[in-house]
Design a protein around this nucleic acid. Sequence first.
DNA 1: GCAAACAATAATTTCGAAATAATGTTCAAT
DNA 2: ATTGAACATTATTTCGAAATTATTGTTTGC
Lengths: 240, 240
Amino acid sequence: MTDGRRSSGETRAGDVLQRMRLDIISCVLKPGAKLRFESLKDMYAVSFSTLREALSRLVAEGLVVAEGQRGFIVAPLSLADLLDLTDVRVLIEREALRLAIEKGDDRWEAEIIGTYHRMDRLQGRLGHEYYLSEDWSKVHGEFHYALVSACGSPNLLEIRQKLFERAHRYRRMSSQFRPKWREKDVEHRTIMEAVLARDPKRAADLIERHIRETTENVVEHAGHLFSGGIPRSGADVAAE
Amino acid sequence: MTDGRRSSGETRAGDVLQRMRLDIISCVLKPGAKLRFESLKDMYAVSFSTLREALSRLVAEGLVVAEGQRGFIVAPLSLADLLDLTDVRVLIEREALRLAIEKGDDRWEAEIIGTYHRMDRLQGRLGHEYYLSEDWSKVHGEFHYALVSACGSPNLLEIRQKLFERAHRYRRMSSQFRPKWREKDVEHRTIMEAVLARDPKRAADLIERHIRETTENVVEHAGHLFSGGIPRSGADVAAE
DNA sequence: GCAAACAATAATTTCGAAATAATGTTCAAT
DNA sequence: ATTGAACATTATTTCGAAATTATTGTTTGC
């Protein structure tokens, strides 16, 4: 074993999978970028087959695209995909939140309050550009997960998680253009309050607005980064 | 190349993936069964790595479960999973159908009528045990896909497809106990009529009933095949 | 007789070389 | 100058052996 930090019970391929997923979500590996095996082999210090396994799983997650027999690329971002993703996320998040509010117990409430607190404090510590921090993104993700975690549906949670991760790449695009993140902060608190007050309709409406406003932010501030209405990869643009 | 039938542009791993998926869905590979590499290597005539890639993708699709460093098993079926799957499918199918009815054009209508016709004729040819036929299952799947295909959301369609395939394994369980498939036949026609009449509410209600009744059928006729009512994985049980 | 430690076996997981497909280049013919 | 075929190069895909890890069976000490 070359890396002692590998968590027990995990295969090396699973380990690389997680690391690559984070790198794609955080755009270290850029959308549309070609994934050459030689580079990746150095980057993650594993062999062809192990890489291939990780890439294959990422394909099924929608973060990587397999191009026939021409290798793999990081799944491109496009306006069309963002808009579609947003609609599907709204559907899933609303339902998951509704169910969680219906079924959640004390422990669930505590987890929400806890993650919100951590997110809030970290935010204060990081200052006004907190949204650029990967640490904050992590806690932010945990907060949103906590909200719906009590929905009782493993399938819904799994689908939600994959969509959330894909959406993070778009969020990151707009974060570089300093959007109105202060408003987002208030939204998180408002959502939490509605959820803890067990108001499913209000909570669902708030989470929908939360998601849609973020999307609008991306379209407004970073929409010009997309080639057009047509979903095209960065590689395609570079090739012109 | 050992197999000339490999479709162009496809990798061998992708080919094995498809074949394994069909074998799992049709329960040639039985739920919970251990997937030993030696057997699979003979069965699909490929090497370790190629198999591993196909298995990895199936893990991400939820048809196979990776057990730490103890290999792979076919994803087990359980009552809890069936019930959860049913609820999520209802959510997705309703929305997809609503959108399709809103956006569908003439070509979409024609495709629905066409697949229904094929399904109906094949059924007549196959006689009263048509539901055991894999050919019929294929057309049946195409009919249900046709209904929602015009929804305009690639993400929704992809999620729906994966859930549909997973559900097929449960449908198959009950089909061996001769459920009331004749009623299903009438339902398909009724659903089609509601869809073509562009009645989203009625169509969504019908598709929901269609899905839920099939689930109830499975629970009633084949529920005893599940280990217990409690949703627990083999790993959880072993850990106690 | 039982349990723990150890050895033997059988499985999975990883590796890097070999095969295969895609891409880029040269060069002749129009 | 442009096209296209043949060749060279580069990258991916596949393979099977080697390393690692789990499982089974055996022995040893209590």
